[in-house]
Write a protein that binds this DNA or RNA. Structure first.
Lengths: 229, 229
DNA sequence: AAAGTAATTATGCAAGCGTATAATTACCCG
DNA sequence: CGGGTAATTATACGCTTGCATAATTACTTT
C-alpha cells in the first residue's frame, strides 16, 4: 500500500536556492519588503518555510543574495548588448546607455526592487558593501566605454584620468536618475524619450554628439535588448 | 495629598503631530522602516503608543505625513538659498545646484530616508502621488532657473518649451543621481567634488559654463546653506 | 532489498506587530 | 473652586513574524 505519488521531490541545492531567490524578488517587487516574509517566499516557491532555513542560515542572507542577483542581472542586461564587436566604440556607448534606459532594465519592477534594497544599505553592512561593489562595477564599465569613445574620436588627445573619472560619475548619475524616474513614473514619459535624453546628456557631458550619430547612421544599435529575463 | 508634579502635559495638536513625525523620521533614518514601529515612535516622542492613534487614524497616515515633510524640507533647503534677489539668474541656478549637492541636503540621513519611502510608491497610492507631486515641484523649480539663466545669457533666442523640458529632466536626473551616491557612499567622494561635477554637467547639458563663473566671480553663493534642520 | 543520510515537512514558541477600547488625568471655562 | 472634556495613558487582543526543533520521506549506496 505504498503511495505511488511522492509527497515532494528532492532538488539540487543550487536550483532550490535559485527558486527561493526568485520568489523573494517577485514578492519584494510586488508587495515591498514587508510582503516578503519567510512564509510567503516559501509558499511561492512551493516549499514549506522550514526549507529556507536549510539553505540560508538567516532571512537576511536570502535577501542579500536576492539583492546581489538583481543588481548583477541589471548590469548584465545593460552591458551585454554593448559588448558586441564589429561596431565602433561610440556605438557601444550608445547601446549601453540605450539598453539601460529602456525595458526591461528600466521598468517599474526593477526600480521598485532596487529601491527596496537600497533603503537598508545604512543599517546592513553586507548590503552596503554589495551596493558599493555593484556601483563601482557599473561605473567602471561606463568609464571604459567613455574612454574608448573619446579615443576613437580624438586618437591623439587622450583624456586625463581625473576628467574621465568625473565624466563617468556624472554620466552614471544621469543614467541612474533617468532610470529611476522612468521606473517610478513610467506613464509621464514617452517611449524612448528618456533614452534620447540620456544620449543627449551624456553626449553633452563628454563632448560627443551621441544622439545624432544614432539617428542617422546606425539606428539598429538603439533597439531594446531582446528579453532575456 | 495631590501630586504636585503632573504625570503628563497637554500639548497643542500640531506640536504633538510634529513631534511624532520627527520621531518617525529619526527612527526610519537610523533603523529603516522596520525600526519605525508604533511603539518605538511613541517612545522616542516621549508619549505612549495610544496617542499616535489619536492623531493619525493609521500608521500609514503617519508615515505618509513624514514622507511629505521630508521631501518638502529637502526641496526647501535646496531652493531657499537660490531665492535671494540681487544676484544673476545664472548665480541662482548655481546656488540651487550647489545647495542640493552639499550638506545638509546631500547626506546619508536624507538619502536613506528618501530610499525608505521610495520603496513603497508602487504598493501605496498615496505615496506614489506624493512622489509625483514632489518630483514635479522640484523639476519645475529647476526648469524655471534654467530658463532664466538661458534667457539671461541670450535674451533674443528664448529656448523652446520642449527643449527646456528635456533639459530640466536631464539636469534633475544628474542632481538626483549625484545626490544619491553622495549620500550612499559619502566616503568615496571628496568634499564639494559632487557639487562641482553637478555644475559642470548641468552646464554642459544646457550649454552654459556654470562652474567657471562660480569659481571666479561669486564664490559666496556656493556656500552650504546654514543648518535650518 | 535494506540501511543510511540528507532534503523536506510538520509543529511549536516567544516576541513583536498594529489596532481597539476603557480608564485616567490635565487643563479650560463658568 | 468644581465640572466637563479632550488629551493622554493603560491594558489587552488577535495576528504575524523569524526561528528552532523534531518528525517524516525521498533518494543513494551497497
Amino acid at each position: 500500500m505504498t503511495d505511488p505519488r511522492p509527497k515532494f521531490k528532492r532538488e539540487p541545492a543550487t536550483q532550490r536556492k535559485d527558486a527561493l531567490i526568485e520568489s523573494a524578488l517577485a514578492l519584494i517587487s510586488e508587495q515591498g519588503v514587508t510582503g516578503a516574509t519567510v512564509r510567503a517566499i516559501a509558499k511561492r516557491a512551493d516549499v514549506t518555510q522550514g526549507l529556507i532555513r536549510h539553505y540560508f542560515s538567516t532571512k537576511e542572507e536570502l535577501i542579500s543574495a536576492a539583492y546581489e542577483r538583481h543588481m548583477n542581472q541589471m548590469t548584465e542586461l545593460t552591458a551585454a548588448p554593448a559588448a558586441q564587436d564589429g561596431i565602433s566604440a561610440t556605438s557601444r556607448l550608445v547601446t549601453f546607455i540605450t539598453a539601460g534606459l529602456t525595458s526591461p532594465v528600466m521598468d517599474t519592477r526593477s526600480v521598485t526592487l532596487w529601491a527596496s534594497f537600497i533603503s537598508s544599505i545604512r543599517t546592513d553592512a553586507a548590503m552596503r558593501q554589495m551596493h558599493q561593489q555593484t556601483y563601482y562595477d557599473f561605473r567602471n564599465r561606463l568609464e571604459i566605454l567613455i574612454r574608448d569613445a573619446l579615443l576613437e574620436s580624438a586618437p591623439h588627445t587622450p583624456p586625463c584620468p581625473k576628467n574621465l573619472r568625473q565624466m563617468a560619475i556624472a554620466c552614471n548619475a544621469v543614467i541612474d536618475g533617468l532610470w529611476m524616474e522612468g521606473g517610478a513614473l513610467p506613464e509621464t514619459f514617452d517611449t524612448d524619450e528618456l533614452a534620447q535624453i540620456g544620449l543627449k546628456s551624456v553626449g553633452a557631458i563628454i563632448g560627443l554628439p551621441l544622439l545624432d550619430q544614432t539617428l542617422t547612421s546606425t539606428p539598429t544599435h538603439t533597439q531594446t535588448p531582446k528579453g532575456q529575463l
